[in-house]
Design a protein around this nucleic acid. Sequence first.
DNA 1: CCTACCGATCGGTAGG
DNA 2: CCTACCGATCGGTAGG
Lengths: 192, 192
Amino acid sequence: MPVKVKRKEHINSAARNLFRERGYSATSMRDIASTVGIEVASLYNHIDSKESMLQQICFTMAEKFLAIIPLVKHLQERPEEQLKEAIRLHVLVITSHADESAVFVHEWKHLSEPHLSAFKKMRNNYEGFYRDLIRRGEELGLFKNIHEKFVMMVLFSSINWLYDYYKPNGKLNPSQISDIITDIFLNGIKNN
Amino acid sequence: MPVKVKRKEHINSAARNLFRERGYSATSMRDIASTVGIEVASLYNHIDSKESMLQQICFTMAEKFLAIIPLVKHLQERPEEQLKEAIRLHVLVITSHADESAVFVHEWKHLSEPHLSAFKKMRNNYEGFYRDLIRRGEELGLFKNIHEKFVMMVLFSSINWLYDYYKPNGKLNPSQISDIITDIFLNGIKNN
DNA sequence: CCTACCGATCGGTAGG
DNA sequence: CCTACCGATCGGTAGG
């Protein structure tokens, strides 16, 4: 990898990590510079601005999540199996990008317009996909009849904290994690 | 209520709300002052510092949550019923203090020492109570045998986002919310 | 990639 | 409760 690209990646990875640990607002460009080991001014040879780094993280992750939708739809199976597969892929994205996932979940509100609106739109699309799956499961009598938005929220909140739990060398690997989540969640909402 | 107390409460409520909406770091004392309708300097006749307001919120909420433990233990029932009651009370605290709950969940990391350590200790005690309940349920064969820390995390993450969902005039009241959460969660972890 | 520097804003204080 | 102000720090730029 060229030296310049490597340095840029170093800066972005420091930013990701600090944004996650301290939050976007509490992280200064000086923090990032000193983590990387260069002067603040030098950062700007590689990146455009503090917010541009936040944008990159949020939108890259949004795309990774949205890419799950066509993969799952392509399966053409029942809502239960589709949901299972969607959870499996979602967990894979989170566990393989823990820092970025934390920033995606918590720091998007610091985006400025028009990025903020664009981000919310993408997130709504993603959530809508799960709501539809849940609604279809309810209509087919597979799931209990609960307000889909509520069930969707329970699912997402159970899943979106995994970046905090997951450790690459921990007791559970991504596959075991999604199995357990799927087991608890699907048994929880299953009719009978 | 005396005028002075009323003004203080006004300041604290503005702070709670802004800390929740924008985050602690992104909220300035000038934001709080202008929401209340006074000058920044005047804030300091009522409060000690920006962090003192964060401390007040975090520790007041920690105490409200910890107060649930003796109430539940006093019941002397099976883990399943104790867990159900704990969830009911936890949801009540969150739904009746939505702003403070959001701050409690997300902004505690901006506490300085020794408050930060004290806060973490209280939170660990609270989480430990739920882990014990879950472990006892597993030992009695009532719950599936899953790593209790993981189950505890799923439970808390499902519950701690409720401040975002709950609207005082929304479709579900606190009692319905805890019924659904309990239903999904306990069926999810129940043995058969 | 650094030195030197910018205007803006930060939390907070003195003094009345 | 306000006017006036403090030193520190912010994101970012000019110029080499």
